[in-house]
Design a protein around this nucleic acid. Structure first.
Length: 164
DNA sequence: CGCTTTTGACCGGCGC
DNA sequence: GCGCCGGTCAAAAGCG
């Protein structure tokens, strides 16, 4: 490929740290989408709603979304800005088989940015919950090896019930 | 009318 | 010190 890779695979293994590059994580487990590494340190919190990935509005039917969501990894990172305030940001990465990245998980999202990642020929979309008080952010990116797969990364907890 | 979306530019952090 | 990347915000336009 023409694109040069200034960054060879030399990234030090972050055992407990969330993978800085999502692609890195995918590369380590690109062959298994049904199984995840032993998360004995932290169990992935309740995922959004795998079943919500399908049923619903006719919009979905036309998209032909598969409906199979695979949890890549769940990590609870505690950001201690103050000694008293411990903000736990839950990160949940999902690999969903879908042709469109606009999967409706039951919440409303407003796209606030699009960026091209060097590790992927596809752009990365940044979504944020439109609900007031919902610091939840969603990152959507297409798989580099499987364009038919969409990587959805949720960050934060919804503080309000789903819109639907 | 309201809301959403799109692009660009900007900033910070980190690495070497 | 400089470069690079990622991430976010802003403004504007279009659409329902």
């Amino acid at each position: 490929m023409s694109d040069k890779n200034p960054k060879a695979a030399d990234s030090p293994p972050d055992s407990n740290q969330w993978f800085h590059e999502l692609s890195d994580y995918l590369k380590l487990n690109d062959d298994d989408d049904d199984q995840w590494p032993p998360d004995d340190d932290n169990l992935p919190p309740p995922p959004p709603h795998p079943s919500l990935f399908v049923p619903n509005t006719g919009d979905f039917g036309a998209s032909g979304s598969g409906g199979s969501a695979t949890l890549l990894r769940g990590s609870s990172e505690e950001i201690s800005g103050s000694e008293n305030k411990n903000i736990i940001r839950e990160r949940v990465a999902f690999k969903t088989k879908s042709e469109v990245e606009i999967l409706d998980d039951g919440f409303r999202w407003r796209k606030y940015g699009k960026k091209m990642v060097k590790n992927s020929p596809n752009p990365r979309n940044y979504y944020r919950c439109t609900v007031d008080g919902c610091p939840v952010k969603k990152r959507v990116e297409r798989d580099r090896d499987d364009p038919t797969y969409v990587i959805t990364t949720y960050e934060g907890n919804h503080t309000h019930p789903a819109s639907y």
